[in-house]
Amino acid sequence: MIEIKNLWKEYGDNVVLEDISKTVNDGEFVTLVGTSGCGKSTFLKMLLGMESPTRGQLLIDGQPIPDEPDQSRGIVFQQYSVFPHLSVLENVMIAREFERAPLLGKLFGGRKKQVREEAHALLEKVGLTPAADKYPHELSGGMRQRLAIAQALIRKPKVLLLDEPFGALDPGIRADMHQLILELWREHNLTVFMVTHDLSEGFYLGTRLWVFDKVRHDPQAPGAWGAQITYDLPVGEIPADALAQMQQNINKSEESNITGESA
């Protein structure tokens, strides 16, 4: 369970997030949407441990989230999250090698074989078996993201963080990836947080949709007020016209934000 208690994030005078309180149960799939610079990526970084809250608490199973990334929280970025110098198979195996070879970071013989089989099984699941011996630069964008997901799952994290993972993909491939991520989410009983720009993605993926937005806005001091979670909606019960309305709002404030801040 992840608890967010009166969470604030500020950079100097610039308030990014203000007073957020939420509880997320294990196995929920939360989609985070909002304008760019509204703090959803900052929130994801806090879950990852790269940023710490200015005020308030961020608890995972009652404990504060560690202040650096570790294997309990996996991540898939939009790009650059696989290792270009390793083959697809090695990219998945390396996580187990980190775990089981603290000194060399590399496994040999029977122990290596065992990990290779585990990695092959995972690649099979994400549909990358034919590409196991290729290097990432030989893969398409969609296949590379499949690899990044497989890589993130081998250490069996409880929480999976997705930072606009499908933003650079074609719509058809994106639909396949949605299917894949939903399957894996159910199978591994993951708690997923996904940041996206595409509201329709949040509309039918997962269980919960959070909309980040600034409730108050001071044109003279754009950094004075932070974003809050203005909608917390169970997915599947959002009427289509409300969705269209929200998308419009986001687009509108996106335009007005162009002259404003970037965070």
């Binding site: 990334p69 929280r73 790009q79 996580a95 980190f98 250490r155």
Partner: peptide, 17 residues
């Protein structure tokens, strides 16, 4: 890219790794 270093940490890598 910093993403790679963060990814490695989420896979359980130490500084040495």
């Amino acid at each position: 890219p910093r993403e790679q270093l963060i990814k490695a940490q989420t896979l359980g890598a130490s500084s040495w790794h």
